[in-house]
Design a protein around this nucleic acid. Structure first.
Lengths: 341, 341
DNA sequence: TTGTAAGCGTTATCAT
DNA sequence: ATGATAACGCTTACAA
């Protein structure tokens, strides 16, 4: 079998389109890439040829010739991957994918094994992608930020540690969110306000604890009543148990760092016959089904979930296009009133 | 600036490695691709050159020359994407990513808009990927199965409708799982057994309802007590409400098609003062935190979650390697005894 | 075992 | 506005 025959079996090439349209390959390429310098007749001819032949450009060739991958990576460190089933996390990923699907970029999912960070770096550096989104939660994932010198990078959530300058990131202002939530607790008349905080090796965990502290300080309230969880419902239960077991730790209000923990905490409170919101008022963060279907439904600080993902992708694309984008992009939160407060 | 200078600024090429190692490009290529026909000296020389130069092969070039993308797609229809936060779904994706990370294949996430299925097809056909994994839930997503003629395809979950022959898929035997769960209910002495089933436009929903029916039939039990949910906790609550509101619908046992719905149903039961397992025994499917942290913890049919994803990727790779793989791959489930039965 | 050389299907440069 | 033509960096017969 000759080369020619072998070729004709595969998908049509730009060259075949050119032949069918009676123009040069250059012209076809221009039409495909929307160059302004083409006569409408040429465009029509090429498009019809593309249509009848069912031509689809070969991405490998484009990448090679154009030095662009038309793809971005979504990097998720292994230790963060366990949050996959977290509604917030899931929504962010969806937002990213959704936004990207309106562009010509494709999304490569990269679960980065802590073991060989080298492999991840290589991947990101071999031209596989034109930019990367990093969804990192842990404080010690600083290794990624240095990548921004090689390839445009946008973080989801405020990076905790980084070498040189602050990398680009999209997040909500977690300190402010926690502060406003706690203020809300104060405004409702609660005098002794505790918290169930998130892990202190993540920015979200740290920031929300800090926001709670700031609000208490502003009102001269003691900040002794605090327990730490890991954002899971189970850890919320455990933290609540510990809170209840503490001697002399009384509280009539609680800021719980996310809805999953709050839902766990709530079930413990119920078992102990503590009435919400009568005995203790609760406010949390995240407006997912953990918040809305809790008993009672939780008053909460809602963060824009899919929007975070969309914005991350948008910022990255702007960055890749060479635009000047502010390094920090903070999305607004809003309080959703329900029945727990 | 000359070409030579321009080049030397970019990342090292195979050619530069060849020069540094004092061999031809072919030999470098052979070493990189693990060809057996290379002397160990050559290998050593090349590897050291690669090391010192920090060479990373350019994927675009590999794709173009080798006609392989070294990538697979994970296709998630838009209507299925809402299950993103479902623990099972999340675990499957993780399993896929995990398995793939041990290979040289990368994962492209494709949220397929129902609107332009054409775009999805084009993507899959333009050589972007060597194969695809489809995570479809809805009965009317038959469009994907026809793709298997163009590119190796593996479904996650039994496809509901397909044109020609049954495509390859990985799943658990949901009919058997539901049947065994219901049998377990019968064995515990329950006489009137109802169900809260999943959507009847998904194979999982249909199959688990069918399994429940089969078990009841085998024991001559009436199958009138059934309500449908959509697998969300909220829908579980609603279904439970309806069940309770039904006139004359008595039951002392319930098979609930997944843990999320069961957790919702449980809270309604609690509100109504119905004791579990005393008044009604409950068994469900999925061993996630909805099952383990419910009050009481749910006896459940656990399915291998990440394993499904891993197996999907494994089957796809085998398929791509031209191996002969059985079309249906059913993974085993096991009953986890807890306190709801 | 190793090297030579012909592609792979685009884009980009430079004329025209 | 259009067309030649030279890259892009690698794989892979084929030859040696």
């Amino acid at each position: 079998m000759t080369q020619m025959q072998a070729r004709s079996q595969g998908r049509p090439t730009l060259e075949m389109v050119a032949a069918a349209a009676g123009v040069s390959r250059s012209t076809v390429s221009r039409v495909v890439n929307g160059s302004p310098n083409v006569t409408s007749e040429a465009i029509a001819a090429v498009q019809s040829a593309i249509e009848t032949l069912g031509y689809v450009p070969n991405r490998a060739a484009r990448m090679l010739a154009g030095r662009r991958a038309h793809a971005v990576a979504l990097v998720i460190p292994e230790n963060t991957a366990k949050f996959f089933a977290d509604p917030f996390f899931a929504a962010v990923i969806q937002g990213v994918a959704q936004f990207l699907s309106t562009t010509e970029y494709s999304l490569t999912l990269l679960i980065a094994a802590d073991a060989d960070a080298k492999k991840t770096r290589y991947f990101l550096q071999s031209g596989n992608v034109d930019g990367a989104l990093v969804l990192s939660h842990h404080i010690d994932d600083h290794s990624y930020s240095s990548l921004s010198q090689e390839i445009p990078l946008v973080f989801g959530g405020r990076p905790m540690s980084f070498g040189g300058t602050m990398p680009h990131y999209v997040d909500v202002d977690n300190v402010a969110a926690a502060r406003s939530a706690t203020e809300r607790l104060v405004a409702s008349g609660r005098k002794r306000i505790g918290t169930i905080a998130g892990p202190q090796n993540m920015a979200v965990g740290i920031d929300r604890l800090e926001g709670w502290r700031q609000a208490l300080r502003a009102h001269g309230i003691d900040d002794a009543v605090a327990e730490i969880g890991d954002f899971s419902p189970t850890s919320g239960e455990a933290a609540m148990q510990r809170l209840l077991a503490r001697e002399g730790a009384e509280f009539d209000g609680l800021f719980i760092a996310n809805a999953q923990m709050a839902s766990g905490a709530l079930s413990v409170l119920r078992e102990h016959g503590v009435k919400v919101p009568h005995d203790v008022g609760i406010i949390t963060v995240d407006d997912d089904y953990f918040a809305s279907s809790a008993k009672p439904p939780l008053t909460t600080v809602a963060q824009p979930t899919t929007e975070v993902g969309e914005k991350m992708a948008e910022v990255l694309l702007d960055l890749m296009a060479g635009k000047d984008v502010p390094r920090v992009m903070e999305l607004p939160t809003r309080i959703v009133e329900r029945a727990s407060l």
